[in-house]
Every structure is written in structure tokens, then in C-alpha cells.
């Protein structure tokens, strides 16, 4: 995904640096910084950022007036007002000047990123947003979970297919996601991998007892539940007010089963391990 260009307008050097550092490890790139209104208008023309963060108090004009001027250059511009005050009158004036969102100082990293993501989603598309912002959390908890729960090393590969259908030869644990966005997680693997998974998890070696398929399924279900729960709580840490929760697991087993979720944008995260391939498919409803 292409970097999303952000211009920061603030008369305080510290504030500009803070915003730049919040965005440092994200897909947002600070392409310009302006310390007053005149400079902001000039730099907007040159740099054509995707999003502008705007301080209210600037030495030569207020943020609303500067936003109005930028909006005059580009009616499609996306401006986030960051100010110490946030009242209804300011917001109304700001909306009329073309400001899309309002944040109150001090702004947390999460709030800022969340707001910018929502603003740019039309231009970069929901698939990219999910891939860049949601999927990495699940990759991390999946890989960490396999390491912690089973002592498993894994190689991860991620694929995205439109309207993908999962083909199950073995077991799939399905865990729903409620809140915004809605979705579901499906952890699936072959029957053989499931048996090895359970024996590893329960620390049973060759002659140290067998595990029934029912027990093996229960083991996979429990691990999947833990990993899915961690993934969603990680997202909740980053994106507040989304109230994302996981449903209790449902487990489908058998051969030649297809699982479809027609309305989801989904990503298949495959962990290649010594026990076999363990897959986690994470899908989100279109439209955040």
C-alpha cells in the first residue's frame, strides 16, 4: 500500500515533532510541516498531502480560516483539527470551512491514527486498511500463541482473495467478532495436524498415551479461542470505542467442507510448522 501523505500545521515545534513521531511507525508519512497559515497554504499547493492536521491557533490566522483557504484550493481535502478547545460552535464553523474531524489536545497516538485511518479509507480502500492495520495484530498473536502454547516455530505467509472459500479437510474453529467492524476468525488444519497439535500441546510423546479426536478438537478449540481473544483485545487497545468482542467458538469437523463468508474481506494467515500447516483466516465485514 502506498504511504498516505500527511501535512502537519502547528506553530509549536514540539507539537509538530510529537505528531510526526506518533506517525513514525505507521503507514502515514509526514510530507510537510507548516508553522503558520501562509506557509500551510503554500505547502499544500506544493506537496498535495492526503490529509492535513490543523492547529487552531496560528500566528497569522486561525486554523478555521486556513482550512477555508485550503478547502478553496482543493474541495476534496481532508483536514483534522487538533485544538485545546472543542465546542459545538467551533465544530460547526470548522465543518463549514471543510474540516472533517476534530480532536482535542492532548491527542493520543491511538486517537490520531484511528481518525486518520477513518478519513483516508475512501482513498486507499478497505482492503488495504484491514491488511495494514488489523491483520498484523493477528499475525503477531498467532505466531506468539503458537510459540507460547506449543513451543512451535512458524513461517507466516498471508494471502487475500476476494470472496474466498475455505476448504476444510479436518477441523475449523470459528469464532465470531462483534462490534465494529464485525467479522469472524477461522482457525483450521488437517486431521493429522490437529492430532499432532493436541499431542504437542498436551505434551504427549509417542508411547505416552494417545489422544482422541474429540480431545484433539477441544485442544485446538481452546488454543484458537485464546489466540482470537488476544488478537481482538490487541485491536481494542489500538482502536478504542469499537467494542470488538469474540463469540464463543463453534467447531466444524469433517472432510470436503467449504466455509464461505460472502460479505467478508478476508485474509488467510498460514503458519508453516513442523506439525503441518496451521491456518488462521481473519475476515471483516465490508464497510467499517
Amino acid at each position: 500500500m502506498e504511504k498516505v501523505k500527511v501535512m502537519v500545521v502547528d506553530d509549536s515545534r514540539i507539537s509538530r515533532m510529537m505528531i510526526a513521531s506518533m506517525l513514525a511507525k505507521t503507514n502515514f508519512e509526514v510530507c510537510a510541516m507548516a508553522e503558520n497559515g501562509a506557509e500551510a497554504v503554500e505547502l499544500y499547493r506544493e506537496a498535495r498531502p492526503d490529509i492535513v492536521t490543523m492547529d487552531m491557533n496560528l500566528p497569522d490566522a486561525d486554523g478555521i480560516e486556513v482550512s477555508r483557504r485550503i478547502h478553496g484550493i482543493d474541495p476534496q481535502c481532508k483536514i483534522v483539527m487538533i485544538s485545546a478547545m472543542k465546542d459545538a460552535k467551533l465544530m460547526m464553523q470548522g465543518r463549514l470551512a471543510g474540516i472533517s474531524s476534530f480532536l482535542q489536545k492532548p491527542v493520543s497516538t491511538n486517537e490520531l491514527i484511528d481518525t486518520l485511518l477513518m478519513l483516508c479509507q475512501d482513498s486507499v480502500g478497505a482492503v488495504s486498511i484491514f491488511r495494514e492495520s488489523y491483520v498484523p495484530s493477528f499475525v503477531k498473536v498467532f505466531q506468539d500463541g503458537l510459540a507460547q502454547l506449543l513451543g512451535l516455530k512458524s513461517e507466516i505467509s498471508i494471502t487475500h482473495e476476494e470472496d474466498s472459500v475455505l476448504h476444510i479437510e479436518g477441523v475449523a474453529v470459528i469464532i465470531g467478532i462483534t462490534g465494529s467492524p464485525k467479522g469472524r476468525i477461522a482457525v483450521y488444519m488437517s486431521t493429522e495436524t490437529m492430532r499432532r497439535f493436541a499431542k504437542t500441546m498436551l505434551q504427549l510423546s509417542g508411547d505416552n498415551g494417545e489422544v482422541s479426536d474429540e480431545e484433539a478438537e477441544a485442544t485446538v478449540e481452546e488454543c484458537s479461542n485464546i489466540i482470537a481473544g488476544r488478537g481482538v483485545s490487541k485491536l481494542n487497545d489500538v482502536f478504542r470505542d469499537r467494542e470488538m468482542r469474540v463469540t464463543p467458538p463453534g467447531t466444524i469437523s469433517g472432510s470436503d467442507i467449504r466455509i464461505a463468508n460472502p460479505e467478508l474481506i478476508s485474509f488467510d494467515i498460514k503458519a508453516t510448522t513442523k506439525l503441518g500447516d496451521i491456518c488462521m483466516n481473519v475476515g471483516f465485514s465490508r464497510g467499517v
Partner: peptide, 16 residues
Amino acid sequence: DISTPSLGVGAGAQVK
């Protein structure tokens, strides 16, 4: 609150 539906196709599947 409810999740999105997951549709499974295949006779002989068991759903716990």
C-alpha cells in the same frame, strides 16, 4: 451483539 454469519457446506460435517 451478533457476529457475521459463517456458512458451511458439506454433508457429514459435525458442528460442535
